[in-house]
Amino acid sequence: MEEFNYLAPESFDQAVVAKSQHAEKSRVIAGGTDLLLRMRDKVVAPSVLIDLRHTSLDKILISNGVMILGTSASLSQILENSEITQHFPALQTACREFAGPPIRNRATLGGNIVNASPAADLVPPLMAYDASIVLRASGGDRALPLAEFFTGPGQSVIAPDEILMEIQIPLLPASSAATFIKLGQRRSMAISQVNLTARLSMNNSDCVTDARIALGAVAPTPVRAHSAEDALVGEKLSEDLIRMAAKKAREEITPISDVRASLEYRLEMTEVLVRRALIATWKKQRRTKTSG
């Protein structure tokens, strides 16, 4: 690891000033579970590290129908939050299947996003829940849909003077349900071969009013399967319709072969897992309807 100057600003404002001052030469460090490995392998060599630990950016709260998650909320904090259990259970499933407890105690939501790995587990659920993010620079804030943040593996639109401040998710009507599925080489401590979240809103006659299918590890960035979603909306849900939508999802993705899985396996499993996720989501819908 190259040497660096370690800063731990006492407030978020000071962190923003430090980031604009050191820009390209600096990196923010949150949990460090991605950054330290990259620094050790000399993929990145920042001369200044800006630690967010004193900036109180780990709050999780609901305000005006929007859940606001501070960028430094750890995966363990997300797992312990009962409002997330109630409104965004698929995000918690993704956290539960992420590494093991000691990593979950350090790794942060914002780090998972800014790291911009195509396989990041928390991104598909956030995308399926229509999350947006707020970036702050000394010049001001900028908000954008999470889906517009990523530009390639490890690449995003974040500017060198910007810090991710928070993630916002609009609360959903009770008629919406979602399912996260991760395929890895084992149950814990595995990076995803494919991960996805499906979310459906339906009316009383089983007609799909809204659909989201967000996929990870099958393209240069996390992606939405738009044509599969379009195939569902306005239609009465059936197993045939689900099968057809799953095929469309397979046609939309552009996976590669790597150490974790081959291209062919990813294509095949995407179709299977989209089908499974849609069926599981449909079942959840029925359960909410019969119970209330």
Partner: peptide, 8 residues
């Protein structure tokens, strides 16, 4: 519990 190798 945390991984002490992943903390500066």
């Amino acid at each position: 519990p945390v991984n002490s190798c992943m903390m500066l």
